[in-house]
Write a protein that binds this DNA or RNA. Structure first.
Lengths: 361, 361
DNA sequence: AATCCCTGTCAAATCGGTTTGACAAATCGG
DNA sequence: CCGATTTGTCAAACCGATTTGACAGGGATT
């Protein structure tokens, strides 16, 4: 190859120029130099409790301030062995960390706690029903995070893998028996029971149930609460009044239309989430039924929306923020080395009576 | 103090036992040892393109697999100078990263891009109107993240500070002129224009406007679009038909009641966000007006909710996911060193005509 | 005056990787 | 058969901090 005078940029051939860094942040070394002390002395002056004369300490502090010194995060992490951050893992039943009205509120509670203690929150890619190792496990193995908070349904196998890497895990809204990770759950059964008892107390005898698939604990627990309430109220179950649907207002709408089209239609419906209850309300409008005169509706969750529907929705308020904050605090304790957390913490909820429930007949 | 025999746990006095690590993850050194090669050879075999015999490479790979080796995140970051992660900063106008219907959709778009390239998302604590240095600036100075994505309103001063630390910044939904950080915004003026023209085209002459405070660009831009559309349609502005309100359905409800109580009430209202439009719809019900027969309503954003109201809301669809994804891609390019991004990227939106708008009279 | 104990500072090791350059062995061309 | 090149491996330096232990100098004690 002919070399053009001046060089056809043999960039890779000659030793690369040291590429002066864009605007290199100052390191502890710079601070030490400016303060006229050695590097370890500067370190001690800034955060050590070692024997440093107050005069030196002040000099180092000023130098650090002048240079806008902030310790390099990765360097500290490497040396200290802590990353001061946790991973938030959206579970299999979440559509996405930012796309779920329920978990969003839970995570607000989580966030407030971690923010308070200065712990970073890393949003892990949402779980997928694939046999591949999910990213959060690799994050654990890479010690990228000090702890992991899983929100929702997760394959126990991966949790064990993460625990095996020595990183504590707390599971939100999903108790897996036998797992060495504490869980924080809502009292789903209790909530369903309270909602159903409320309707029975108003005189309803035909109480419909719009539940979730029973292959998730949530589906089973709400089902159980509903059934127990019927029994305690002296009512008999009628399978024609019950349906299991995906958690989706559209699906609820269609199933509710079916329920309401029956000759022996329910006079009240308990839907296990507010989104489902919204679908029921839409179906009632469609069927020409007035709420609550012709049909009572109770939801569960108390998403913000619930208070502004027409009429406002009676619902079981799930303490989403408390769930989140509790899980966060448990995780922080685990990270700190404490082990004495109960395997499950159940958060009680509260019936909020608004405008969609009324007496019958 | 009397010491009880057996000791009142002088825990802090005696040297803590070395606390053997829970189950120490394997390091590259272990892999090298198992494979019978030196440490740098193992490194090269796993990810270098250097001259390693394929036999050795395979041996190292197997050893790594056997030991479930995952490189220590902090160590790589320190050496490579990249953290492979970005900070998401909730702006001043966000109630919280998880509590805002609009930004939530934007961030879903952001997330999909970063997830695809394996870039971690760190949720920075939300900005507060305080003079203190916000955490995201420290994250930049600590090189904790490679880039910063600010969602919403932010003090230009802090953005400059972060840029000064050499960390690229992209601002979402808020263009600050003169800032060396590219912005991605919605065409607010265009959307307001389209909405207003739509109403004018239906024959409405009294078009009300529920806007936002004009001290944010969003308020000014929508105001401008509304005004221009009136002018182009040959209508005259009437200040009694306009109101500026906080972005909040409750506030919209109250202001809309006032607008509708006037003798010369609007026959149509354009509200600059869907949440406001929901408030207007509630106010119309309260005032006994049917939609769209007595009052047409147009919103803006097209939050999920908009399609399920009764009747479904006509609105300006903001391409929230596109905004997010675009901003993410621009940031990635900035991180890679490219500088040729336009200072503002405006995302066009689209009028979605549903059931809340009708002809007049 | 000799010994001892503090006090304040710094040299050196470490965390777990990546990268450069040196070196020995193998291969090649003439 | 010799020098040049290529190939495969490893020693050493480095990223930016923290922490341990050594050391010099000054004051108190005997």
């Amino acid at each position: 190859m002919r070399r053009v005078a001046g060089g056809a940029k043999p960039a890779s051939a000659r030793p690369r120029p040291p590429r002066r860094r864009a605007r290199t942040a100052s390191s502890l070394r710079d601070v030490a130099r400016l303060a006229g002390v050695s590097l370890p002395t500067a370190s001690q002056a800034l955060n050590g409790r070692a024997r440093i004369s107050s005069e030196t300490r002040e000099r180092v502090r000023q130098a650090a301030r002048r240079l806008r010194y902030t310790p390099h995060a990765a360097a500290r992490r490497l040396k200290l062995g802590r990353s001061n951050s946790v991973a938030i893992v959206p579970g299999l039943n979440m559509t996405g960390i930012f796309s779920d009205l329920f978990y969003r509120a839970v995570l607000a509670g989580v966030g407030s706690v971690f923010e308070e203690v200065g712990c970073r929150m890393l949003i892990a890619p949402p779980l997928r029903p694939s046999p591949q190792t999910p990213p959060f496990v690799e994050m654990a193995q890479a010690r990228e995070v000090d702890g992991i908070l899983v929100a929702g349904v997760v394959d126990a196998r991966w949790v064990r893998e993460a625990l095996g890497a020595g990183v504590p895990v707390v599971v939100l809204d999903n108790f897996v028996p036998g797992l060495a990770a504490p869980a924080v759950v809502n009292d789903n059964a209790g909530g369903a029971y309270a909602a159903t008892r409320h309707l029975a107390g108003l005189g309803h005898a035909q109480i419909g149930f719009l539940g979730a698939a029973v292959d998730y604990p949530f589906g089973r627990e709400t089902q159980a609460g509903y059934t127990a309430a019927l029994r305690d109220a002296g009512l008999t179950r009628d399978p024609r009044l019950e349906a299991a649907v995906p958690i989706d207002a559209g699906a609820a709408f269609r199933h509710a239309l079916d329920l309401l089209a029956q000759p022996n239609r329910p006079s009240a419906i308990f839907a296990v989430t507010d989104m489902l209850a919204l679908g029921v309300m839409r179906a009632a409008r469609e069927a020409g039924l007035r709420i609550p005169a012709d049909l009572s509706v109770v939801g569960m969750d108390d998403i913000e929306l619930a208070a502004t529907t027409d009429p406002p929705l009676t619902t079981v308020r799930v303490r989403k923020d408390v769930m989140g904050a509790t899980a966060a605090r448990i995780l922080l304790r685990r990270i700190a080395g404490e082990t004495g957390a109960p395997p499950v913490t159940t958060i009680a909820n509260e019936l909020v009576i608004r405008g969609t429930t009324g007496g019958w007949p």
